[in-house]
């Protein structure tokens, strides 16, 4: 996936939300306000294009808490590079969904 890929605003929001630490589907939905019928297909596309990676939680951890295992997502190196390029296109994205790194930058500036 090239770094200068043109993501739609929705896809960019989802990527930014995962980057900001919302690492499972429901949390991304809550952060972005997007419905489930949009978020999961979008995450599948991002995963297919190598911008994010998913992994299933270990069954033993889930068993210990007596709940089903959950699927977690994280942004890949390509995904991060793509996000940097996407910020040029959607400058408000970082403010809408601040990631820990960006929050740190703001603090340093202050």
């Amino acid at each position: 996936m090239p770094v200068d890929a043109k993501l739609s605003h929705t896809a960019a929001m989802i990527l930014q939300a995962i980057h900001a630490g919302h690492i499972y589907g429901f949390s991304v939905m809550q952060m972005t306000g997007l419905p489930s019928g949009t978020v999961y297909p979008a995450m599948r596309r991002l995963e297919r294009d190598g911008l994010i990676l998913s992994r299933w939680e270990q069954q033993s951890i889930a068993d210990a808490d007596q709940r089903p295992p959950r699927k977690y997502y994280r942004v890949t190196r390509t995904g991060k590079a793509t996000l940097e390029a996407v910020y040029q296109r959607y400058p408000l994205l970082e403010k809408m969904i601040p990631s820990p790194q960006s929050a740190l930058k703001v603090e340093q500036r202050v």
Binding site: Y24, G25, F26, S36, Y40, W56, R67, P68, P69, R70, K71
Partner: peptide, 11 residues
């Protein structure tokens, strides 16, 4: 199905 069920549980 596994992902939907897991998310539904947490929801």
């Amino acid at each position: 199905t596994a992902e939907w069920n897991a998310e539904l549980y947490h929801l």
